[in-house]
Simulated scan of single mutants.
Amino acid sequence: MPDTTLPLQDRSPSQPVRFRGGGFTVKGHRWAALLAFVVLIAVWESTNRFGLVSDLFLPPPSAVASALAAMAQDGSLWQHLKASLMRIGVGWVMGTVAGMAVGFAMGIGSVARAVGVPLVSAFFPIPKIALLPLFILWFGIGEPSKFATIGFGVFFPTVIATYSAIDSVPRNLIRMAQSFGLPWASILRKIVLPGALPGILAGFRITASIALILVVAAEMIGAEYGIGAFVLTAGNLMLTDQLLAGVLVLSLLGLSIGTVLSILERRLLKWR
């Protein structure tokens, strides 16, 4: 029986204590996602091969891949993809730049916050695609109305993400910098902006997905080219293999945007 009369610090442990300060370290599982996709595609293909699901309602992955390859060969894929990427890029940049400016002003200015928070709370819940007819009336049925729809949809989440990220910066760091006489511009550049950057980049992931959703909806109204217009045409003609090929392109596009944002986060947040 061990001697319990000795102080805890005088006891010699029989085995080393396990380190418990991992801090929720994320471990890399490189092949987990790929394995999950392979299993999902295999199950999907098997349901069609064994006749459990009709090809009209859910074409097998092989048929979707064939339709996608045919689109790539005849050039229609690149034509639709180019149109959608252009609309996403312009609309997202417009909404992001304006949203960051307003969110930054709300985060550091009391007057801007008092005015901006109620306005954002009032306009943010409005479905942006419902305003597309109004934007068409204002800007015409061409590209400007689609840019406005995407930019308007991206603007409000960017404002909220930027404002919340700046508001979450520890005030002790700001007070410490002020006590050392650091200029206000340097405080914003060296303390506020780096501290808010993780939250802003997290907002970019949300707004990129919103832009992708809105471009599809906008292209279904008055667009000749674009992934949304292609999906709508394929659905009207009951070409479900082409429809799912368009959906696959959208999924890959979202995955690519997420990968680019992950690379950007690793480069800009090395200090974490």
Rank of each mutant, 00 (worst) to 15 (best):
L6Q: 12
Q9D: 10
R11N: 08
S12I: 15
G22P: 06
G23C: 11
F24M: 14
F24T: 11
R30W: 13
L34G: 11
E45S: 12
F50P: 03
L52R: 06
L56P: 03
L56T: 08
P59R: 08
A63E: 10
M71L: 12
A72N: 12
Q73G: 11
L81I: 05
K82S: 15
K82F: 09
S84H: 06
R87I: 03
R87G: 02
M94D: 00
M94T: 05
G95M: 02
A105P: 08
G107N: 07
V117Q: 11
F123A: 08
F123W: 11
A130P: 07
L132Q: 00
L132K: 00
L132Y: 03
P133V: 05
G142V: 08
V154R: 01
F156K: 02
V159C: 03
V159T: 07
I166N: 01
L173A: 05
I174T: 09
G181H: 04
P194A: 09
G199D: 08
I200N: 01
L201R: 08
F204K: 02
I206C: 04
L212C: 05
L212I: 11
I213F: 08
E224I: 00
T233D: 00
M238G: 00
L239N: 13
L239F: 05
L239R: 13
G246N: 09
G246C: 10
L252M: 14
G254P: 06
G254C: 07
G258K: 09
T259Y: 15
I263V: 15
I263G: 14
L269K: 07
K270Y: 12
